[in-house]
Amino acid sequence: MTERVEERLDLGSFDEKFYAIVGRGDENLKYFSQLFDVKISAKGTEILIRGEEDRVRAVYDFLKDIIKELRTSTLTPQEVKERARNYVRLKLEREETPREEIILITHRKKAILPKTHTQNIYVDAIRNNDIVFGIGPAGTGKTYLAMAMALAHLKANKVNKIILTRPAVEAGEKLGFLPGGIAEKVDPYLRPLYDALYDMVDYDKASYMLERNIIEIAPLAFMRGRTLNDAFIILDEAQNSTKEQMKMFLTRIGFGSKVVITGDITQIDLPKREQSGLVEAIKVLQGIEGISFVWFKDEDVVRHPIVARIIKAYEEFERAKEEQGFSKEGEGKGKD
């Protein structure tokens, strides 16, 4: 019999983040109790969780993840409930050891396979859904694994072509002012996708597929008016798409197509007056059949170990700045 335990988690203050987690009249806590099969109650700003050890740990880890996300994002109570449903479906129901299933063998005879639990979830989500959002920090394999899955689908004749697209906004340049044709204009922005492609396919074969339009590159703004059938489509850096661009892109998808959308909502380069299409899509599309959201964390970073440490250092720096700002604001309010 599993040992019964108790955990306490202090949410810190009665602000919008507190209410996003507990819900109106503790509605979310009641929902979590049923979903995770534990007893949850609130006393002040403290959450008390009682139940079997593995289930209590699951709720505790889930709430810690939500608290971390709320440091950089705004979530409604309904969105937090949706996160909980996804957590149970993708974590608690998949506790078996991750399968080391090879996605693709590169031209250098290197096997590409998921390296973390979240990457396993991501790959399975791509297999089983029409549209998958991979959201999280740089270096977690979102783009690389999407490219590997695209090439695997092409090799298995599940799709006829691969389409790579990305918003071209990072440098503040307009495509019309950049030299060359469409491929040359968008090339600097799609370089990470090229890097992944040339790492998996030899240069001559990749060039052949690009020349024959088996692999197509297209700036996001140029997708309007098209219907994309029997294609594997990767939208990279989606946090830099506008609301209008994201809606336009999602409504281009035709029969037999699969779409992977990647992005990091903490790295939005749009002008301040523009809302990110990725942020809006997260709010609008939760719970729709055929669409899956996979959230990557710092521990999923698979680049050089120093990358994870850099990401963590920046997060702690931003958190300290935010706390210092709240402190100064409090001091100001106390003055006459």
Results as ranks from 00 to 15, higher is better:
L270N: 10
E216C: 12
Q286G: 13
L220G: 05
P271K: 10
I214D: 01
S292Q: 14
F249P: 02
S292I: 07
I215K: 06
N213G: 10
V294R: 10
Q245F: 04
K258A: 05
V301P: 07
F222E: 03
E289I: 13
R309W: 01
E280V: 08
F293I: 14
V307I: 14
T266F: 10
S257N: 11
I261G: 09
I214S: 03
D264T: 11
R226P: 02
K247T: 09
D269V: 13
S241D: 04
E216S: 11
A238G: 02
Q239G: 00
R303A: 11
I265L: 15
P219D: 08
A238Y: 01
M209E: 00
R273P: 00
A281V: 09
K258T: 12
P305E: 04
L235R: 03
L210D: 00
D236K: 05
R212W: 00
D264I: 06
S257D: 08
K247G: 08
R252P: 05
T242H: 01
I288F: 11
T262V: 06
S241R: 03
E237L: 00
R252V: 08
E237A: 06
F222A: 12
E280C: 08
I253M: 11
I291S: 12
I217W: 08
K258V: 03
F249V: 02
G277Y: 04
K243E: 09
A231Y: 06
V307W: 04
I282T: 07
D300F: 12
I265R: 14
R309E: 09
G225I: 12
E299G: 09
M246E: 02
T227K: 13
L285H: 07
I310K: 10
N213C: 06
F255Q: 11
G287S: 15
G256T: 08
Q267A: 14
A218E: 01
L250E: 02
R303M: 13
L278Y: 08
V294Q: 09
Q245C: 02
S207Y: 03
D269N: 12
G277V: 09
L250S: 03
G287M: 12
E299N: 15
K272M: 15
R309Q: 15
R303V: 11
V260S: 04
Q275K: 15
F293M: 14
A308M: 14
P271L: 15
D298M: 13
K283H: 15
D264V: 11
T251Q: 06
I291E: 01
M246H: 08
I291F: 07
G225Y: 12
R212K: 15
I268R: 06
M246R: 05
R224G: 03
N213A: 11
Q275A: 15
F296E: 09
I288T: 07
V307L: 05
S292W: 02
H304L: 04
M246K: 11
V307A: 10
S292G: 00
F249E: 00
